[in-house]
Amino acid sequence: MCQPIGVIFRRELYSYFSTPIAYVFIVIFLFISGIFSFYLGNFFSRGQADLQPFFMFHPWLYLFLIPALSMRLWAEERKSGSIELLLTLPITVTTAVLGKFLAAWAFTAIALLLTFPMWITVNILGNPDNMVIFAGYLGSLLMAGAFLAIGSCLSAITKNQVIAFIITLVVCLAFILSGFPLVLDFFSSWAPAVIVNTISSFSFLTHFDGITKGVIDIRNLIYFASLIAFWLFATVALLEMKKAD
């Protein structure tokens, strides 16, 4: 069981780097995350030694970049017909889904790790709490995983990558916005508090902010883990149901 996952994982991860996807993604990720934290996040003028302005923009950055990464996971397999090859090999659908997801996740982890100059900078300039920064990275990685799991599932419904991209973006946006004051205010004016809290509890932002503040609450971890598990399970179910077109 474990070994074929590794084979799929290696092939997928390798394929990111054998095409321009990896380099384009990483360069743009580093570039935009830098711009956001320095210009929009006032990294310097805040005068605080932390990476709050850096992590603050990650949900928005992921909103556009992750669907671009996840759209190819299954849509491309469908388009090229290689799904027929992959799913007639002696592996289970779960193995294929996990292998591909983990490769994409590992790839975002690599991109995230390459932001280490930010961490060095803030350590040179001041004396930050590195545990909080570590928590920020962990939260960011978990959130990227949730985005990817959503993207994996939605990429399995179509052979058109553009459609996969747009639908993933919309669903991810819904998951971000459900914690936004704008949306919550709209509901809180008439809906009971239970509903408002439920909607808010589905939000990436609520849980992500919690983690980036340095509080690694088990509930936040469970939230992201169960979100990933749910969407991956949905991917498997979808593929089992509809392997061919």
Binding site: S18, S80, G81, S82, E84, L85, L89, I91
Partner: peptide, 21 residues
């Protein structure tokens, strides 16, 4: 399915493969 798939070799129509490899 896995026991059967191990015994099988399959060339799907159009011989799909991973084009970037």
């Amino acid at each position: 399915p896995l026991a059967v798939k191990r015994r099988l070799g399959y060339l799907p129509e159009g011989a799909p493969a991973y084009p970037d490899m």
